[in-house]
Design a protein around this nucleic acid. Structure first.
Lengths: 238, 238
DNA sequence: CGTCAAATTGACAAGGTTCAAGGACCGTGG
DNA sequence: CCACGGTCCTTGAACCTTGTCAATTTGACG
């Protein structure tokens, strides 16, 4: 609550962008300014409707959201989970239309994303963020296409651990998990009933603990190994 | 073979880009020049290795390729099919690493993609192409997450019809299909045995005809309706 | 004609869904 | 403080879709 003198407590969103690219002062100032009066939205609020013209990119500051695809018969697929520090509707071409709608899964706080023109490092951070998002979409495809239910759950839990760690939102291999099993099922192309059963198996095997709002992975490295998925990297180190 | 005087026969790749954005003469000239001595590669050639530094974007001129993700235990998922006119390794940020490998599924011809700086319309065409690719990734997620085997096959066949039509490679709701059932299975997260059985059902229902190298969809509109998937649009009309 | 990859078939097993019901855990209002 | 209602989690049994394994057929091609 009380900011320290040297390093004021940072918004997870800024922590994440800073982890992607070392931002210059212009970028940091712009971010601090933009995030100041955040816009708060209730759960289920539709941040972006599919087919709608995208106005300006937004930055997710707090809470979780999701890109979803609804079929006419009521089925729905969560395409991608959005966490604090993720960009919403960032896009580099003219006259863009949202390819999917985006809804808040919890109460969220968002702000307008500062203009990339303000700082080259900020522009690069946005590009990195998009590259990560792209990588997560590919990961999701492999998850749905090749993994069984247990693997899907474990793999998603690992991805969330990685991503939340970037924003400083994970400690001791565990993080706050605001989703219901039903929502996880929508993300993994499973039924909530089956997610429930497989969670019990993972719990019994000691691979995953999820009680209350907290999810922990006692041994992420072993779990990752057992999945056989190649590591995801997005840009070369310097 | 013999170019007509007024409209020389166009490469399907150029036809596609032209369908995305009305290209100016600078763009067309650059494309005609670049595509001239195409590089020809055998099937299974690896156009891009995962984790490898991306050098320059390429343009697929002829044949089909795929982005694939291989798991250590031998499972493999085709993330995305690449058709003539698609860009390979186009990307707007510094020091990019390929997030997945790309392999030729048939013999292919590629060329270096002309520099976007040569023409604003060319840059816009590339951006549109990337937006389409993104939309196809989302479509693939919904396919794998929510559809049963029969729907997946039909939905993929419809997507291919749409995409090949852009390049002028489809007539009468039918197109040349160079993939094996095994490859289709890898793209749809199914086994080739099951793909085979479901193809028989679709054939019996008169929804899909695929014999030899030709695939036709007698009634794409009806099929699309039955799938309940919202239409995909990428940019606003003028 | 022989060979090889691809397509096809059958019998069976496994994984996931469906339906239905009960139980736990809230926050709310009396 | 307790009763209530709602949402979420949990469980069981039957059922259906898809995978597995193994064998056979087809078709292209030298």
């Amino acid at each position: 609550m009380t900011p320290k003198a040297a390093h004021p407590i940072q918004s997870p969103a800024i922590t994440r962008l800073l982890a992607l690219v070392p931002l210059d002062d212009a970028a940091l100032d712009a971010l601090r300014l933009a995030t100041q009066p955040p816009r708060r939205l209730r759960a289920r609020y539709e941040l972006l409707a599919a087919g709608q013209q995208i106005r300006e990119a937004q930055l997710l500051l707090r809470g979780w959201a999701a890109r979803v695809c609804d079929l006419r018969d009521g089925r729905r697929q969560i395409l991608h989970l959005l966490l604090p520090g993720d960009l919403i509707g960032s896009c580099e071409h003219e006259r863009p239309l949202a390819a999917s709608s985006i809804i808040a899964l919890t109460e969220v706080e968002v702000c307008a994303a500062p203009d990339a023109a303000l700082s080259p490092t900020l522009r690069e951070a946005y590009a990195q963020s998009r590259a990560h998002e792209q990588a997560h979409l590919l990961a999701q495809i492999t998850r749905l296409g090749q993994m069984n239910a247990q693997e899907r759950i474990a793999d998603l839990a690992l991805e969330l651990l990685d991503r939340l760690s970037l924003a400083g939102l994970a400690t001791n291999n565990s993080y706050a998990m605001p989703l219901t099993q039903e929502t996880v099922a929508d993300a993994l192309g499973l039924t909530s009933v089956h997610v429930n059963r497989m969670l019990q198996v993972l719990r019994k095997d000691g691979e995953l603990i999820w009680s209350g709002r907290e999810l922990s992975l006692p041994n992420p490295e072993r779990l990752q190994q057992s999945m056989g998925r190649p590591a995801v990297r997005v840009s070369a180190s310097r």
